[in-house]
Design a protein around this nucleic acid. Structure first.
Length: 271
DNA sequence: CTTTTGACCTGACAGC
DNA sequence: TGCTGTCAGGTCAAAA
């Protein structure tokens, strides 16, 4: 689902089409997202020019003249670029009507996504202020990860998924990065060495970057096709491969549950 | 403080 | 065919 690479691919796909355009109107058909979409948001947004598109963690930030829209795609959300008169489907909850005859349309069947608007510094918004460092940024370093995990008994995999430790690493990429780093996801985070965290940081970065590249290359034309990056499928080492042979050693991939979510590992390659 | 659990929601799928 | 149950996913909020 929308993990960090999908959000980044969406941002890059929309980048040529949104900044510089004016939002003629905002249409909210269903306010029931994860939190109710603020009443009156339409009037506060209408008429503003879009300045930039940014990403922080898995949030897409749409900077406009007087503030910032803060959008999360949840688990089933996607954005598309459509014509104004394109009929809205069942799960098409929000449109941003641009001044070029098109609209950026939010579709989210499960409504786990969210949409906020702030006229403060968006990074100080309660949803963003607590986010840990970006996994692709300098703040996510072996020393940082080693330091903040000392004394923690939670597993390295669960800690890797904690947004306050590092933002934007979801279940798929936590599983994949731990496989590539050769670390057993069940190991206590506080008992992983600095050297192994160095490897893990490298693998988190490379896994995410490769997925962003894959997303970019599978991105359809936002102007002429149906306009969404969708959720690109990749070849995973372990994710969703329970019982299948490890791509490195052939041993069957095992699955287990950690904190109510599925983990996958190769019992031979990961220690 | 940390850790665990629950909540939110719908579509896909398995099994009867 | 139509039910019922399970699962997936992200992340905040509350409980322990």
């Amino acid at each position: 689902m929308p993990e960090l690479p999908e959000v980044e691919t969406t941002r890059r796909g929309l980048e040529p089409h949104m900044p510089g355009r004016r939002i003629e109107a905002m249409v909210v058909r269903d306010r029931r997202l994860r939190w109710p979409v603020e009443p009156g948001i339409e009037d506060r947004i209408a008429g503003q020019r879009i300045l930039a598109l940014r990403r922080r963690a898995k949030y897409l930030l749409i900077d406009v003249e007087r503030g910032t829209l803060i959008l999360h795609l949840g688990m089933s959300g996607a954005l598309r670029l459509v014509a104004h008169d394109e009929p809205a489907g069942l799960h098409d909850h929000v449109d941003l009507r641009l001044d070029d005859g098109r609209a950026v349309r939010l579709t989210d069947p499960r409504r786990f996504g969210s949409l906020h608007y702030t006229e403060q510094d968006a990074l100080l918004h309660p949803l963003l202020a607590q986010c840990g460092p970006e996994p692709l940024g300098d703040g996510f370093s072996p020393g940082y990860l080693h330091r903040v995990t000392r004394g923690r008994t939670a597993s390295v995999k669960e800690v890797l998924m904690m947004g306050r430790i590092v933002s934007g690493v979801g279940n798929i990429y936590a599983n994949e990065a731990l496989f590539r780093a050769g670390i057993d996801p069940r190991r206590a985070a506080g008992r992983v060495s600095l050297a192994r965290y160095a490897r893990l940081v490298k693998e988190v970065r490379e896994t995410l970057e490769a997925a962003i590249v894959a997303g970019g290359s599978s991105l359809r034309d936002w102007l002429h096709a149906d306009g969404t990056a969708g959720y690109f499928q990749q070849d995973y080492y372990v994710y969703d491969r329970a019982g299948e042979p490890c791509r490195r050693c052939g041993a069957p991939i095992r699955t287990l549950r950690q904190g109510q979510r599925a983990s996958f590992l190769c019992p031979v390659c990961q220690r």
